[in-house]
Design a protein around this nucleic acid. Structure first.
Lengths: 354, 354
DNA sequence: CAAAAAATGATTGACGTCTATCAAATCAGG
DNA sequence: CCTGATTTGATAGACGTCAATCATTTTTTG
């Protein structure tokens, strides 16, 4: 049973097709009472416009962009790969995707990149952002052009984006703490945390959630102040080496930030029983460390799922539908046994396949 | 840049539109060399048919069905809810969904239900199946009618379905074991497992994976033979009560099957330190038990994700595209801190919203 | 009440594909 | 080279929407 068409609506409303069209496409120059009549007819008949026909008619191509930080960060490489493969299979649905890399995490770089986007005739963009007031003006300009803006992984000022897709980092920290607590089986212990910097909101939130749970549910555990690493593997390695020497009584390590390769190298090189180790983001080296038994858990935010959702939400918002209900995005716990197949291998397979 | 149309292909191939159409829609009565010419042109131009236009033209409605076991099982209630909400938001894309409930897990019921489906003019169906040769004949009949068949949650005979969407239950068991092992922090312990029956393939596989990891990586743990429960809460409660009395030294419980409400009631009622508890599937009572601290972990197969994938894969297969690459579906670990918002609440919200 | 402004109606040609029809061309076999 | 079969070409209407034009009606305003 094909749904009612706009002609049906017009007829039911007692107006011409042209008027009904003016109403649903907001072309203006319609009397209030005509608008009301059409809207009542839409509701009565349960009209939903046929998106396929609409897109066909205007031979629409959804022009989307992703704005992600530049750099060789393994996590964002993973994000980029996911965008590319997803885009590849979305061309069938007439969706074109641009990836824009903003220099570093700096506000200025972001500002400039957002301003650039405004020149580009784009329908929607997902931005790995910062909650800085300095972004409000370029974002407002972008949205004034009718561009749909959503936050991805790291949120934007809330009033200046239509949606945010990413995990709750307090939850991530709490989850890590729960696992660390469990792994002590009621016995006392000392935990050392690492963070990139306290300027990074996500790092702070993870530490915060972590401390909450340890404090509340595992009083027998001692939590030492976080060590700052700038997310630099070299710093992490040095600090971890130092720690393992100086404080052999440390029973658990938790790094809320990046730079894990350094941490892993340090642990792999150390002798004797190692502390229980939790890190974030499943990337090639954390994956390998899990398999090798150098670390115990990886808390991951499922960038693949995030990217998929970003596409779904962008499309829905651009079409002015409301996005389908999607369960909250929750941090996922990986151990060596529930690792998905290596995404790098998959990507290589896909490439040789072309 | 709108892609090439079929007219472009025809022109490039040096044939008429009609012939090109006959080739790509396999209408027959075309000379071999014409087929070759068209196919070469398709490849050369990178033609992909505009699905929107095609569907519009034939005012196509995708008629899908889900065949799931009848009964009040909390897990399948959850599956059903997810199908319904997903279907709700898919009507925009002209997809109609039927849910067919097969009586019990019995092969005969399934056979009959599959035979019924063959009468129903359906484009594709996802079946919660069994690996029984008895299903081969009705499945073959169904597919002979051009119906796309995929397995969901529990697989069908492999040669008779186009895809399977579900988790690897050996992996699920291994994951559970890893967590149980961790929670012992190197100390000895005794583990009791529960299963519905050894006829259920998924239960056997979970036990198998569990034993693998305990045996290999946690030799200090003793694994007792699984207790059979028929997935009946009453049986589980009785058995657990008994166990907690008779064997106070038990340090961990793992139920690979259903009926958890009984297990939870038993644990909640018991005095003193309880064993470490792992169960499967996040449903209202396991969720509540997690929050209340009666159990420690829930291993979940993310039915919401499975349902979404089922829709995506069915559509792709019906359109004769290949499905987008999707990372393996892995068992998810829930603790009290990374629980997604209560799906029941969400559902009620959605309903009052209509 | 006339003139200007605003709103409405009627209609048309895309968009790319499907499906059908009918005529014309090509081919095979004797 | 004729007959009949097979293969091709040409074309047209439909699907539901968008976007535009132009004529007509209704409302507002001075």
């Amino acid at each position: 049973m094909p749904g009612p068409t706009l002609s049906d609506v017009a007829q039911a409303a007692g107006v011409s097709y042209a008027t009904a069209d003016r109403v649903i496409n907001k072309r203006g120059n319609v009397a209030e009472k005509s608008i009301a009549k059409v809207q009542r007819a839409v509701a009565a008949l349960g009209y939903v416009r046929n998106v396929a026909a609409a897109n066909l008619s205007r031979s629409r191509v959804y022009r989307l962009a992703f704005l992600i930080p530049k750099g060789s960060n393994a996590f964002f490489n993973r994000i980029r790969d996911h965008i590319i493969t997803a885009a590849d299979h979305l061309s069938v649905e007439r969706i074109s995707v641009d990836i824009v890399e903003a220099s570093a995490f700096a506000v200025e770089g972001l500002q400039a990149s957002i301003a650039d986007l405004a020149q580009q005739d784009i329908d929607g963009v997902a931005i790995v952002g910062l909650q800085s007031a300095a972004l409000e003006e370029p974002l407002a300009a972008l949205r004034a052009q009718g561009v749909v803006v959503i936050g991805l992984v790291s949120d934007l000022p809330q009033a200046f984006r239509s949606a945010y897709i990413g995990i709750d980092n307090i939850v991530a920290g709490r989850t890590a703490a729960r696992m660390v607590g469990m792994a002590h089986a009621g016995r006392p212990g000392v935990i050392q945390t690492f963070a990139g910097s306290l300027d990074a909101r996500d790092h702070v939130e993870r530490l915060q959630g972590f401390a909450q749970v340890i404090g509340a549910d595992f009083p027998q555990l001692t939590l030492r102040d976080a060590i700052m690493t700038k997310d630099d593997p070299a710093v992490l390695m040095a600090q971890a080496d130092d720690l393992l020497m100086q404080h052999p009584g440390t029973t658990a390590l938790y790094n809320v930030g990046a730079g894990n390769s350094g941490l892993i190298r340090s642990i792999a090189g150390a002798a004797g029983q190692r502390p229980f180790c939790v890190v974030h983001e499943l990337v090639p080296h954390s994956r390998q460390a899990l398999i090798d038994g150098h670390i115990d858990l990886v808390i991951d935010q499922r960038p693949d799922v995030e990217i998929n959702r970003a596409f779904t939400v962008l499309r829905a918002l651009i079409d002015e539908r409301d996005p389908p209900p999607m369960p909250d995005l929750m941090p996922t716990i990986y151990v060596q046994d529930n690792l998905p197949a290596d995404p790098l291998n998959d990507l290589m397979k896909a490439k040789t396949h072309d």
